[in-house]
Nucleic acid binder design. Sequence first.
DNA 1: GCTTACCATTAACATTTGATAAAAAACGGT
DNA 2: ACCGTTTTTTATCAAATGTTAATGGTAAGC
Lengths: 191, 191
Amino acid sequence: MKETVKNIINTIYPISNQAFGEIEKLLIFETYSKGETFISRNKHNKKEYFALKGISKSYLINPDGDEITISFFLENSILSPHPIRTSKNISNLYFKALTDIELASIDAEIFEQLMIENIEIRNFANTVLQNELISKVEKEIGLASLSAKERLIEFRKKYRLLENLIPHTNIASYLGITNISLSRLRKDLMN
Amino acid sequence: MKETVKNIINTIYPISNQAFGEIEKLLIFETYSKGETFISRNKHNKKEYFALKGISKSYLINPDGDEITISFFLENSILSPHPIRTSKNISNLYFKALTDIELASIDAEIFEQLMIENIEIRNFANTVLQNELISKVEKEIGLASLSAKERLIEFRKKYRLLENLIPHTNIASYLGITNISLSRLRKDLMN
DNA sequence: GCTTACCATTAACATTTGATAAAAAACGGT
DNA sequence: ACCGTTTTTTATCAAATGTTAATGGTAAGC
């Protein structure tokens, strides 16, 4: 499990065994069942997560009470809740297990202390933040310049098998359309 | 002018006079005329910009050859091109002066060196990055969960007078709609 | 195995948005 | 002030998407 975390980190920004040792000591392993909601930031708890097994998503509730999917997280990736730290408008960003999942967590405040002390860890964290920003900009471009059908095509390229693994409602809200519209596009794309 | 840069920085993350002194020495002041395109990253030049006077935008060209507005930059703000640094997919992010503008620039590589040496500057830069990510997530939420009309209403709240200062085409592409559609929504909202 | 809840699809209709074209208005340079 | 360009508005029609409702399927729990 710890080896998996190390691999996740190294695919993003390679760090030394020594630097990883600092992180390793602090890892806590958690599991959630399909459908469970969890959060990475509240008054008492601030955590960073590594996704080891299963699929999860971040989402928020819009004024109509619907879940809006913001991001999907596959195995061997990092759940990135950074924006919550300071934003007033993004008060309620949740996470949900879309399958049974296994996570490794680390206390966010301790991790930030590690960042200050260790330049490798700081570079790693900064790369995570930059990657996240890049993915947001890429998604922004897609939403602004592609039709819903084109966005679905891009989604399929990016997330390959995901469409067969999770309820489509999540994908529809991620694409910014209704699930009825998604169903129509799926039919349309079968030909 | 330098005082303005200091104020911009301090509204984001207050730094000491000493830390600002490090930045101040490296500032270069530039002006562009309305309609001019400029870029903050290429092989020979990597710059960070502070917007002192006027309005500018970042944009890219979609496959149809249209300009897609990504962000607007008002006076006393920071032009944030960070994603370009590493992304392959966001190869062509440009900036354009929407009015005559005055900027202060700083060489990005030198600035990164300052970040390493000075924790205040590092914290400032990190806050910029986080703010940028927050604004992307907020925009993402809006695009995914609001109608075009609602997005226009939110745009007006956020950018107050901007609608009267720049060609509406920019706003339409920012909102993800055509300028014809924007015109209809404007008429609709007059009642 | 049965039932219930959730999910995906389909249909019919309403609404929104896009595309194209044309006219009116605003703007810029001389 | 004039001319040419750009921008905004308007109209018409087509296409895409949303809304509501009904149907059938699938998975989970009992």
